[in-house]
Design a binder for these strands. Sequence first.
DNA 1: TAGTCTAGAAAACGATCGTTCTCGACGTCA
DNA 2: TGACGTCGAGAACGATCGTTTTCTAGACTA
Lengths: 193, 193
Amino acid sequence: MSPVPVSDDPVREVRERLLDAAEKVFYARGIQAVGMDRLRTASGVPLKRIYQLYSCKDDVVCAFLRRRHDRMMGAIAGYVARAEGPEQRVFALFDWLYDWFGEPDFRGCAWMNAFGELGPTNAAVAAEVHRHKDAFRELLTGTVRDAGYPAVVADAVYLLVEGAVVAAQLRRDAEPAHEARRGAEILLRAARG
Amino acid sequence: MSPVPVSDDPVREVRERLLDAAEKVFYARGIQAVGMDRLRTASGVPLKRIYQLYSCKDDVVCAFLRRRHDRMMGAIAGYVARAEGPEQRVFALFDWLYDWFGEPDFRGCAWMNAFGELGPTNAAVAAEVHRHKDAFRELLTGTVRDAGYPAVVADAVYLLVEGAVVAAQLRRDAEPAHEARRGAEILLRAARG
DNA sequence: TAGTCTAGAAAACGATCGTTCTCGACGTCA
DNA sequence: TGACGTCGAGAACGATCGTTTTCTAGACTA
């Protein structure tokens, strides 16, 4: 039908379906706890097709982390962009955090989970984690600095956010987002004098 | 020689040797990445003996986490006890943090690493993690509250510490302990009015 | 000394992992 | 219609896992 030999649309569709399933199941249960056969069951993509798209399991893991990174950074940027005024843009970070923590399948930071599990033994995954975390930190501290606050406040706000992610994962509760926001409010007020 | 049939001293010695090796190798490389055979090699304790002391690998994991918990809580309490004055007791938390981050084999929070890896699939490990994290959080926030600061400050200090652990693990650097301390200084000063 | 028990090294076991291969069904074009 | 190519389902493969068993050497007791 189409003059192009093989349209890459169906390829893209299968790839998306695979990465959707990979993200869901790897994030929910951990990476080593999920075998390729479960990935096949969850995605409906045959094993042979999976290995045509990615050369090995590690590549699937890295691909799912990369796509999650793009989506998460976009989501945060959206929250920040919708806020009005520099101070509100900082608080928008905590709005995003609260909404994220409230998602029913929230289970902490996918990159830290992967790093704790595979960091020492898997260089490709470790590199993906560092890539994400550098950008994440820069986005957060940049938002605070762009609002006119000093670096010491930006660094502390970043640590509050990372701490809140850990606390929310442990308690299965969105409240740490509020605790972190209240801490940030004190920091900003003190910096404003 | 001894009238007691079997002294439990050698048993205790073997157990300590096993848990020393388990802690070193599980913490350094992750739990699922370390097989029982590597544990045997690292500890010098025969496989048969390991399974006489613990019924399965999960039990070894829980035992190493419990012993690490006791040591860590004792170490923090020591830093706090040696400080003079309520404010210095809060700052002692960050002294401990800095020294911990500086240890050559530092690789983040052993419990969060285990939780990310095994939390969804291993109830015994998950329970051990919650036990530790509840006590850890109570020790930190209690230290801040006992120094006369309100709960909102105590919660924020706790989040700063958790965030610093994550940041130090990622950057392989003790500097996040200082960033967290500077954030705490601002919080305490603001709370003092 | 003969018999009994213990302990360690290493093989063995069944399960599961990531990855590859086989094989039959189906669509397409001459 | 028939040859060819592609595809998915699932078996198969070698490696490795947690766990159990075997085998042998040595210590102790009567």
